[in-house]
């Protein structure tokens, strides 16, 4: 996103995901810049249609998991061999089979929490965040495309609107945010 967020938008709404995907392809082909796209559920093929990059979240998860594994193994080794060796049930002081369950659990714990926190940060989600709602119906059953209209002339805006309608949009509207707007 830009450092100074635009406030004036054109919003097109579709009611069928297949029509919506085709519309995106055609509009991008025409060279129209799409500011954002909002859907009520994850539409398959949307990221390809928008030309988005593959998310690297899994890779992050792998490294978080590896951290957990290393931490668990090294900490237990340190405690059981160096800092606080105890004699227990005839077990050696470095009982690797005993370490496996906790190692596994910490791997999962780190991977899951690390990934979720990364996900929240990257998606800019936190409790109390006030989102910009372009149209309430996007969380119900409408698929929206948002176009930045800040620096566009009226003619350009109209051409985008016409293009949307031609591609099967059920509704096209302007949306202007004011600074003070809440939910």
């Amino acid at each position: 996103m830009d450092s100074v967020a635009p406030n004036k938008f054109v919003v097109g709404l579709w009611d069928h995901e297949e029509v919506y995907l085709h519309a995106i392809e055609h509009l991008r082909h025409k060279g129209v810049k799409i500011y954002d796209s909002l859907t009520p559920f994850p539409v398959h093929g949307l990221d390809e249609a928008l030309g988005m990059k593959e998310t690297r979240l899994h890779t992050a998860g792998f490294f978080f998991g590896a951290t957990g594994t290393t931490l668990a193994l090294s900490f237990m080794t340190w405690v059981m061999t160096t800092n606080y060796p105890i004699d227990f049930g005839g077990k050696p002081n470095w009982p690797v089979p005993s370490f496996i369950p906790i190692t596994f659990e910490l791997t999962v714990l780190f991977a899951a929490w690390g990934m979720t926190l990364t996900y929240l940060v990257r998606n800019k989600l936190w409790p109390g965040r006030v989102p910009r709602i372009y149209d309430k119906r996007t969380t119900d059953d409408r698929f929206a495309l948002v176009f930045d209209a800040e620096s566009l002339t009226d003619a350009e805006i109209n051409s985008i609107k016409d293009a949307c309608k031609k591609e099967g949009a059920v509704d096209v509207k302007d949306k202007v945010f004011t600074e003070a707007e809440g939910l």
Partner: peptide, 18 residues
């Protein structure tokens, strides 16, 4: 809204969500 963490449903959000 507090509970939704300010969810919007943008394409990138859904991609990461998946």
């Amino acid at each position: 809204n507090l509970a939704s963490f300010g969810w919007q449903g943008s394409a990138k959000q859904w991609q990461r969500f998946e």
